[in-house]
């Protein structure tokens, strides 16, 4: 088998079908980039879920003076004994792993540490923030029982489940992921059809050569390889474009999100995603070429 013969045939084929080749490259690039973005979101969501699951807690906020919450209206705030009693009640619940008391001072310190809160710091004082119990659960999925048990208790302003806040965010990412994957599937179908069409045109353009090759007894592989290579090379170029798009997406979008969400999407994950999308792109090109050749290049 002569490599230079095959490559010159491939080059001629790609040049003759330039418009189709560009169409294939663009479709493969967009399709594979979307597939990659879907995978990146997926991996981001799962690493963040793991990261946050052991950190989520229930915040049980207590009533304070002039609290705006309905449950606190007209009731006195809890004194120290009552607070201790409430803490014991919470610790007594079977779902609870650990309870920490956060008084107004500690809450204010935590509040100051958040970089996004700088503007509020000018107007907020320690006395504006409520006391709270930070409740760690044995099973983060099982928060409703605790909420139910505490809802009747006097002196509790409200209960915030951090998990619900995260779930909203994860839900949004999940939808984005499915949208990206959905469009990726459509693009993959489009790419397959385009490659099939390109190979068909190529086979038609070179029917004289392939006819002679067949007559003089060239092996099927030798006749088909240039056509398959055309698809593969177009697919590879598309894959490289997709890789560039994915790298840009990581830098501009994912790294931006991470300033809020702590867990970064690593370059190793991105490398894995790029490898995977490239392999998928090239395999699709090979399959589409072979299937088309079986129909249009009789051997």
């Amino acid at each position: 088998m002569r490599a230079n013969f095959i490559f010159s045939e491939v080059w001629i084929g790609l040049r003759r079908n330039l418009t189709m080749t560009i169409a294939v490259i663009v479709t493969v690039a967009v399709g594979m980039a979307l597939l990659g973005i879907g995978l990146m979101i997926n991996s981001q969501v799962s690493t963040m879920t793991n990261y946050w699951t052991d950190k989520v807690e229930l915040s049980v906020f207590l009533c304070q003076k002039d609290s705006a919450f309905e449950t606190c209206k007209g009731k006195p705030t809890l004194n120290q004994t009552q607070k201790t009693q409430l803490q014991q009640t919470i610790e007594g619940l079977p779902e609870v792993a650990q309870v920490e008391y956060e008084d107004q001072k500690a809450a204010y310190e935590n509040f100051k540490e958040q970089p996004n809160n700088k503007v509020f710091l000018t107007v907020i004082q320690a006395s504006d923030l409520p006391d709270s119990f930070r409740v760690k659960l044995k099973d983060p999925d099982n928060s409703q029982a605790v909420v139910n048990a505490l809802s009747g208790q006097a002196g509790i302003a409200n209960i915030v489940n951090q998990r619900e806040i995260l779930d909203t965010y994860f839900g949004f990412l999940g939808k984005l992921q499915w949208m990206a994957l959905g469009v990726a599937i459509i693009m993959v179908i489009a790419a397959t059809l385009l490659i099939a069409n390109t190979v068909r045109l190529s086979a038609y353009n070179r029917r004289r050569e392939t006819g002679i090759m067949r007559l003089v007894g060239a092996s099927n592989l030798y006749i088909q390889l240039p056509f398959v290579m055309e698809g593969v090379i177009a697919g590879l170029i598309g894959g490289v474009c997709a890789a560039v798009l994915l790298i840009i997406t990581k830098i501009l979008i994912f790294d931006g999100i991470q300033s809020y969400m702590a867990q970064p999407l690593g370059w190793d994950t991105l490398a894995g995603v790029i490898t995977f999308t490239m392999v998928v792109g090239v395999v699709i090109c090979i399959l589409a070429s072979f299937v088309t050749l079986r129909r249009y290049l009789r051997v």
Binding site: R208, A218, S219
Partner: peptide, 17 residues
């Protein structure tokens, strides 16, 4: 293909490249 290597073919329309 191996069979065809042992058979030469000539046609009315020459079929040259």
């Amino acid at each position: 293909p191996h069979l065809r290597r042992r058979i030469g073919c000539v046609f009315q329309d020459f079929r040259l490249l």
